[in-house]
Design a protein around this nucleic acid. Structure first.
Lengths: 233, 233
DNA sequence: CCCTGGAGGTGGTCGGACCACTATCGGTCA
DNA sequence: TGACCGATAGTGGTCCGACCACCTCCAGGG
């Protein structure tokens, strides 16, 4: 019979699963501090090097947080923490997958905008308007892009679904949009973008979910169709 | 002036970004083999330990793949590879976030099912039917769950959007559904689930996207509302 | 020609050493 | 008495060298 460990996979992989399991079972609470690397290594019967690799892996996944000189802590396990790595998908995708990502974004963004139309608060709406006007007041592509991102981020937040907002954040990551928009903007899409943003804003003010859904879907769909055409020929 | 490295963050973090950058820039192609850990460490001017941590991090993200005794390779960078970690979000989420995840799944699953109604091939439809009948022919919860997963997986694949399918795969990960369904099934939801699956199947056969969308949304929505009630009181 | 065995190269693991940073506790000074 | 501050122990971060387990490939024998 096997005694303690069935020796499946690398010791590091096993350590990752064990720590993940401890959190899933509730033995490690969000924000709680873990034992030191040295102690953890002893507890799991592995070397500190392997334990460090496991900790590093869970760190990039947004599950753990290492503070130099202080200790290792479990993150708050919020959607933003865990879905931060979602951005790498967008950053490393090319060709057809970019279209797929935009399709996913269109579906989620349109729904999120519809929800926002029903739930947005006056303060949030004012914030949306701030970015809308700021975006219309400049010609600097960098600044436009920044306010564009903030515009959609504020709307996503108003939808009251942090998970959805975090996914959309990854699908709109700066490097991702910069790559797609580099070409899109060159075709004089600024005016069109401003019109579409205005339409989304009108739907939010009117608290009309269906109009908001349509406006958001059309907005993302524009870019999606353009990109599809770029790849097709 | 800074010469080579501005010393931002840990050396491991820097190595992760550099390798990721090499892939993003196309200097490393999917499937290509990387230099050895020892060589990479020398190239980036860090120790092998730190380099190993960086490689491990990129491995868990699904970007790299280490083959013992052979070398380190870039994955195909397909949606499945990169979104595998999406499952940990589902596994580590509790309480209100489970509802949020189900809401996201409802949105994506309904759209994917609608797309599938228009695009599914006879072979794929046959596969769907196979899991449908197999699911109805047994009372073993384990087997039902397995065929349930396969049922939706096949439909997602028929939607012709690998990225969406990969996300849905993560949102339906075995441990996630097992946790939610443990209680749901106890309330005699088997019959209802079978009815709903039958409705989805009818819509697929009829090639009716709107009916498929509604049936899928209702199906996921059922579980979502049940879970919402569980948490609410 | 096929098969086999060994050698070299690769990732996987380990232990120890040292550095950089942080938190804490003690004493010192106003 | 109180606030300030420096020493100190403990933490993660980095590096090194060694050895092990595994794969690949090719030379040599059948």
């Amino acid at each position: 019979m096997d005694e303690t460990a069935p020796q499946k996979g690398t010791v590091t992989q096993r350590a990752i699963e064990q720590i993940k399991g401890m959190i899933a079972e509730g033995r490690l609470e969000p924000g709680q501090r873990l034992p030191t690397e040295r102690d953890l290594a002893v507890q799991l019967g592995i070397s500190r090097s392997s334990m460090r690799e496991a900790i590093r892996a869970l760190t990039v996944l947004g599950v753990l947080e290492a503070r130099h000189g202080s200790g290792i802590y479990v993150t708050q396990l919020e959607a933003g923490d865990l879905l931060e790595t979602f951005g790498v998908v967008a950053d490393l995708s090319r060709g057809p997958r970019l279209v797929e990502l935009l399709e996913v974004r269109r579906i989620l963004e349109s729904t999120a905008t519809a929800l926002a139309a029903a739930r947005i608060t006056p303060d949030q709406l004012a914030e949306v308007e701030k970015h809308l006007t700021a975006m219309n007041a400049t010609d600097d592509p960098e600044e436009i892009l920044a306010h564009d991102l903030a515009f959609h981020r504020e709307i996503a937040a108003a939808a009251c679904n942090d998970t959805m907002a975090a996914i959309l954040e990854g699908l709109s990551s700066r490097t991702f949009r910069a790559r797609v928009w580099r070409g899109y903007q060159e075709e004089g899409a600024f005016a069109r973008t401003r019109r579409e943003h205005a339409a989304i804003h009108r739907a939010l003010v009117a608290r009309d979910p269906e109009a908001a859904r349509a406006a958001a879907a059309a907005h993302v769909g524009e870019v999606e169709q353009w990109l599809r055409a770029q790849l097709g020929g």
